[in-house]
Amino acid sequence: MFFSIIIPLYNRPQEIDELLHSLTKQTYLQFEVLVIEDGSKNDAKAIVESYRNQLDVHYFFKENEGQGFTRNYGFERAKGDYFIIFDSDCLIPSNYLEEVKNYLYDHHLDAYGGPDAAHESFTPVQKAISYAMTSPFTTGGIRGNKKHIGQFHPRSFNMGVSRTVWEKVGGFILTRLGEDIEYSIRIHESGFKIGLIPNAIVYHKRRTSFSQFYKQLHFFGRARINIYKHFPAELKLVHFFPAVFTIGFIFTIVCNILYWPLGFVCNFFLLLYFMLIFFHSWSVNKSLKVAFLSSISSFIQLTAYGLGFIQDFIKRVVLKQQ
């Protein structure tokens, strides 16, 4: 089984250096790497070329189109039986391809996704953000979880599709705003089998600051409405949770100003909720600092996603704007 690893890249030379270095440690060696620079001003050509003696690596530069169409560019040039997509801010464990190969031999999948985790080298903020995106107490708990709700939709930071899927379904038709979910829904609807490979873990850095994390999650909230416009049945109750939390938080503030007894009750439940997050993160990360930061990152995740969701729900669903 031969893999083609496809990595879209935009102005992140340091990230691709770390990612390629992690790929030199793979125990399974039947793979190539395609790095597609998506119109970057700060390109990584020299860094990628420096790995030619360690990896079967190919560098391409194209005009900026966004990550979805950049992955398609890689699909068109890949030689593998499976195309594996990574985000440039991932680190790949040495046994990743071995785990994927063994799983695919034992359980046929036409497309797959894998979980993400925090690496020991991550900063406390990165570990807290990783917690917020994978915790059972936030909507992140449904990502890469064996007990996912409804159909499993691989996410493009860690996703694989067979050549057969590419030939019959094609690639991404959206370049951003939920392009990976839209793609996996079309793969499902074409009759292909998609599943989670539990041990195909990547270490996903995500964002390095809370301000960047807020912008990303606000975008994710808007992306969910974009998916709804293409596939209305894919909007589930769980996707409303961050919006409900956000509205509840605003209601709590109003109550504290206008009617403090009700505000006191709301404060109690908010405090209880974030205490659960704090102690769960402490047990997972073994760090009081990360546990404290996890409370902040979870709040940001819920409110940023909720505000993005509400914004585009009003604009695109209620007001019917394009």
Rank of each mutant, 00 (worst) to 15 (best):
K101W: 12
T70L: 06
F60W: 13
A111W: 07
I84D: 06
M133W: 04
A128P: 11
V125R: 05
Q151D: 04
V100Q: 03
G141T: 03
F157K: 02
F86I: 01
E49V: 00
H108Q: 14
G114E: 01
N72P: 01
Y105N: 11
I47A: 10
S88R: 01
N158H: 12
V57K: 09
V161C: 11
P124Y: 13
F61P: 03
K62E: 15
G114V: 01
M133Q: 13
A128Q: 13
Y105P: 05
H119G: 09
G141L: 04
D81F: 11
P154H: 09
Y59M: 09
G144D: 07
N53C: 10
I92N: 03
Y96C: 06
S94W: 01
K41R: 13
T138C: 00
K101D: 12
T70Q: 07
I142V: 13
N145Y: 13
N53Y: 10
D87G: 02
N158P: 13
G141Q: 04
F75Y: 01
G39V: 05
K127C: 08
K62M: 12
L91R: 03
Y112H: 05
N145V: 09
D116C: 08
P136N: 12
F60Y: 15
E65L: 05
P154F: 11
F152N: 01
S50C: 06
K41L: 11
S94D: 03
T138R: 03
K41C: 08
A44S: 15
T134D: 07
V161L: 12
K62Q: 15
I129D: 06
K41D: 06
E65I: 07
H58F: 13
F122W: 00
S50N: 05
T123G: 00
F75R: 03
G160L: 04
A46R: 12
G74Y: 00
K146S: 14
G144A: 12
C90P: 02
V48L: 11
V48F: 07
Y105L: 13
H108W: 11
D106L: 14
D87V: 02
F69C: 00
G144H: 07
Q67A: 04
G150T: 06
R77H: 12
H119P: 05
G114Y: 02
T123D: 04
F86V: 02
G74C: 04
R155K: 09
D110M: 10
F60D: 12
L55M: 08
Y51P: 05
H107Q: 14
K146A: 12
I47P: 04
F152E: 02
M133P: 08
H58W: 09
H58K: 15
D56M: 14
R143S: 10
G150D: 09
T164K: 15
I129Y: 10
Y59P: 03
A111E: 05
E65V: 09
S130G: 14
G39I: 08
E49M: 04
R163W: 13
N53V: 10
R143H: 15
S162M: 06
E65F: 06
E49S: 05
